[in-house]
Write a protein that binds this DNA or RNA. Structure first.
Length: 447
RNA sequence: GCGAUCAUAGCUCAGUUGGUUAGAGCGCCGGAUUGUGGUUCCGGAGGUCGACGGUUCAACUCCGUUUGGUCGCCCCA
């Protein structure tokens, strides 16, 4: 059969795995500096846990797992005859692959409430799956890096998460702009212009501002039945730049804005310590996910055409669907796959990321091959990354292999060397070659 | 779910209005060089031209269908 790989999935070569590990390790190290603890949850969950949390479209994108056994025999004959997938599905599948890390986290918090200390700060770096159409920066299997603080309403965490974004992207050397807004501000804005019943439509529309321009947004709003007067008010709101102008705007509309107060408080924290990246209050930022109730964040690379590299926000009622109220949390996510793509595109990985051997042994015949096997295992025992070509093949072939794996040193062992109990160490970069005694090998490579 | 676009050797790509045996570069294997790679020279292997069907005396080329990639839209990381 022809070898193939499924759409939206990828293989990773050793070099790529090392590059990805570098990204994950960088993110992880920052999370840990801030006192977040790792958790893991299963790859698949009950569909009851997963469905209904991501909207109708989201449910369609869930990968479902077929029931075990002779699952069709238990299906209602009428349903089978009808050929209606929506009716058939609940009878043949009860499990699905997780779609994100947030919903499993909510389940986790509720189930382990008594074992956790609140505020609970967790991070989670695991793959998730979506039956989405693959596109630039979008895959069917990809890693999410989530970090959340749950069980506290303190706006310090909002500021802390902004700092985490700043630290991670500084370490990765990717200049970004961190945008911040507050869902309450948006809610108050729709109230100010007398269109609160269109809150969702308005947020969805203005979220696309940088993509479809005001003309497109205006059209969408009017098509949704929003009054021209309210649309005018929205345009007015969108032209606001900075916290000062928004303060005036709300004053003008006689609204004592709770959202604005929160934004200001977050900035109060942020002013206390320096940031490397741009942070910008952006009244047009909305974010699609409807579970956000307070501050919301989004991060975009300054000079790369690649959607958002991360996002997040505060949610007050995430655990509510699992019958647990009053658990306010705030969290952000890193789009590790997109970070990987951006860094690849722009060749931003540190040059010394590879993890090569220290030395490759090359022997010329059976007896030196066996001798080299002993020497190799000696070095390995001392923590030196050593390898031996598996057979005393032609020297040219062995050297060529050494060259292609980019090993810095080759240890040549022939009859002459073995008699003198030395190996010829060749520096593959300079071509220089020196005889080193067996007993001095460890010291030579230990630096 | 909707739309655009592409698919030829392991990789990157040529292939004229449809016409004999489908090419190049890189890579791979072997040799020049039986103890020396990255340079050079010589030789070799490797293709059901994504798949299926149609038009034609003749299809990599035209038409239809399908699968897959890429890029938009929806949504999202």
């Amino acid at each position: 059969m022809k070898a193939s790989i499924l759409k939206g999935t990828r293989d990773f070569l050793p070099k790529q795995v090392i590059q990805r590990k570098y990204i994950f390790d960088t993110i992880k190290s920052v999370f840990e500096i801030y006192g977040y603890l790792p958790i893991e949850t299963p790859s698949f969950e009950s569909l009851a846990t997963l469905t209904g949390k991501y909207g109708e479209d989201g449910d369609k994108l869930l990968f479902k797992i077929l029931n075990n056994g002779d699952f069709l025999s238990k299906v209602d004959q009428n349903v089978l005859d009808e050929k209606d997938s929506r009716k058939l599905l609940p009878q043949i599948t009860k499990r699905g692959l997780r779609y994100d890390l947030t919903v499993p986290f909510a389940r986790f918090v509720v189930m382990h409430e008594n074992e956790l200390n609140f505020p609970f700060k967790r991070y989670q770096i695991q793959p998730v799956w979506r039956a989405d159409r693959p596109q630039k920066g979008r895959y069917q299997e990809f890693y999410q890096c989530d970090v959340d603080a749950i069980g506290s309403e303190s706006l310090m965490y909002e500021a802390e998460l902004v700092k985490i974004y700043d630290d991670v992207f500084t370490k990765l050397d990717i200049p970004v702009e961190i945008r911040i807004n507050n869902r309450k501000v948006l809610e108050e804005m729709t109230r100010a212009i007398g269109a609160s019943e269109f809150f969702t439509e308005i947020t969805v529309a203005i979220d696309k501002l940088d993509k479809i321009e005001w003309e497109g947004v205006e059209k969408t709003l009017l098509n949704n039945g929003i009054s021209p007067n309210a649309v005018k008010g929205i345009k007015n709101y969108l032209e606001i730049e900075g916290i000062g102008e928004l303060t005036d705007w709300f004053e003008h509309h006689n609204i004592n804005s709770k959202g604005l107060k929160e934004i200001k408080d977050v900035f109060e924290y942020l002013y206390l310590t320096p940031l490397n990246n741009k942070i910008k209050f952006d009244p047009t930022l909305a974010r699609g996910l409807n579970y956000y109730t307070g501050c919301i964040f989004e991060v975009a690379a300054e000079d790369a055409d690649m959607g958002s590299l991360g996002g997040g926000g505060r949610y007050d009622e995430l655990t509510e669907v699992f019958d647990k109220k009053g658990m306010s949390g705030v969290g952000i996510s890193f789009g590790a796959e997109r970070i990987f793509d951006v860094m690849n595109e722009k060749e931003m990985f540190p040059k010394d990321l590879v993890n090569p051997l220290d030395v490759l042994f090359i022997a010329f015949d059976e007896s030196t091959h066996r001798e080299a096997f002993k020497l190799t295992s000696n070095l390995r025992r001392r923590g030196i990354k050593a390898d031996l070509y598996p057979s005393p093949a032609k020297m040219k072939k062995q050297m060529k292999y050494a060259n292609s794996i980019e090993v810095p040193f080759v240890a040549l062992l022939g009859g002459n060397e073995m008699e003198k109990r030395v190996v010829s160490i060749k520096d593959m970069q300079s071509g220089e070659q020196n005889e080193i005694a067996y007993d001095d090998l460890v010291a030579f490579f230990k630096k």
